[in-house]
Amino acid sequence: MCLAMPVRISQLLPDDMAVVDMDGVSREVSVALIDAPQEGDYVILHVGYAIGKLDAEEAARTLALMDQLAAGEQA
């Protein structure tokens, strides 16, 4: 139920709507719940609404930590 997926905003539309790209599939969704959506932003899509933005820097930091953990280094 809380499942959601990361999608990329490819085009902003009027009325707080946007076209998002999900692995090549386009879909119109609402961006009314997030602040200042921009084309190119990655957002979390849940039941037709973007509920939050994904922070690219934090994601990169998490992945780097995972690689460190996997290599057996102290994080």
Partner: peptide, 8 residues
């Protein structure tokens, strides 16, 4: 639904 599904 939980808090995720409530705002919609």
């Amino acid at each position: 639904g939980f808090e995720t599904t409530t705002p919609p």
